[in-house]
Amino acid sequence: MRNLFAFIYRFRAFLVFVLLEALCVYLLVRYNTYQGAAFFNSANKYVGQVLEFQSGITDYFRLTSINQTLAKENANLRQELMRQRLLALADSTASLDSTYYAATDSSQANPYLLHAGRVINNSVRRMNNYLTIAAGTADGVKPGMGVVSPQGVVGRVKTVSENYATVTSLLHSQMLISAKIRASDTFGTIKWTGGDYRTVLLDYIPLHIKPVKGDTIVTSGFNTVFPEGIMVGTISSIEQEPDKSFYTIKVKLAVDFAQLSYVYVVENTKEEERETLEQNAGIITDEQ
């Protein structure tokens, strides 16, 4: 306290000068219209810049929560889009024979739910690649569920903890996906044989089919993991080998696995019912 008083006493003349200057500025701004307007306009400008800078910093540190919110909203929108696609398929089937379908038929209900998850680990250079996502049992994720991105098929959930899950990537030597050529509805099997992480093979397309380079490949819907019509990729090359009864077709994947950030886990609410029925009937499905 003594030092403070000593400081004030030592610089008393300067402090009085500063106080008088501040008083003069106040009186000038307070009682002169032009100076007051100029002062407040300038003050508003600089205060606005400071607030904008502060808001930018705050928003930067909130990006994670904002992205999670947007991912959940996108999941709801994609879920609704999926429902509309299934309704359209049901309507087109119903138009073929109205005897088998009614407007309230349960086949038109959407059995699929989507759960958003952030990718926190990923590999693309190995023979058997996996992802780790920040979504687990607390979010409704279970082993065996399909995983998609906004661009297309990603893989299938392998193991799950409360807040995390590992995903067997489509870039895995044991991962098989039932898919079809959308133009002809001819189905085959997608598999990855290593090498280029943007290219997979489409097997079991018979020679009487005439696929074309650029044809779109989508999921077939022949399993309980992925809904019908989810994008896989486009045909990049077609070979007809003399000793084979099927084409050798290469497909360029729609998903760039090196750029994955958010994915959606697909929950089929009717999966258990269908799998139980097929198991009781002795039907074994190797494709995912």
Rank of each mutant, 00 (worst) to 15 (best):
A281L: 15
Y31R: 07
H172N: 15
G36W: 10
V160A: 08
V47Y: 03
L28K: 02
L89V: 02
L87S: 03
Q49H: 14
G155W: 10
Q79M: 00
A75L: 02
A71Y: 00
I209G: 01
L86Y: 08
E21F: 11
Q174I: 05
N3H: 12
G195Y: 02
S123E: 08
V29F: 05
L171Q: 03
M231D: 11
T137D: 13
P143S: 06
N32E: 06
I57Y: 12
A103C: 03
T64F: 09
G229D: 02
D196A: 01
Y197W: 05
A134G: 07
V167Y: 02
F257V: 09
Y112Q: 00
N110L: 00
G48I: 07
T285M: 06
R274K: 13
A109P: 05
S178P: 00
V265N: 06
G56K: 08
L87G: 05
S173I: 09
F222Q: 15
V29Y: 02
I284Q: 10
A135D: 09
K45I: 15
N32G: 10
K142I: 09
I235M: 00
Q174V: 02
V218N: 04
A6P: 12
L70D: 04
A138R: 14
V16L: 13
E52T: 11
A94L: 08
K45Y: 15
N280F: 11
F14G: 04
V147H: 00
H172K: 05
Y130I: 09
S149W: 07
F5S: 10
R83E: 07
Y34P: 00
D286R: 14
A179V: 11
L81W: 06
T234Q: 13
T276F: 05
N122A: 10
C24S: 10
K45G: 09
Q279D: 13
A281R: 14
N121C: 07
T216F: 06
I249D: 03
Y100V: 12
E278T: 05
Y164M: 08
F40A: 09
K210W: 07
N110E: 01
A90F: 02
A13V: 14
W192A: 04
M175T: 11
I238S: 01
I57Q: 11
F5A: 13
Y60H: 13
T132V: 14
P111N: 01
D97S: 13
S98K: 09
T216D: 01
K244H: 06
Q108K: 15
G146I: 08
N268V: 01
T168K: 13
P150I: 09
T276C: 11
G117V: 08
G282R: 03
V124Q: 03
E239S: 14
I283T: 14
L170D: 08
M231W: 09
Y31F: 10
N128I: 05
N268M: 01
D203C: 04
S161L: 02
I120F: 01
Y204K: 03
G48N: 04
T224V: 10
A138Y: 06
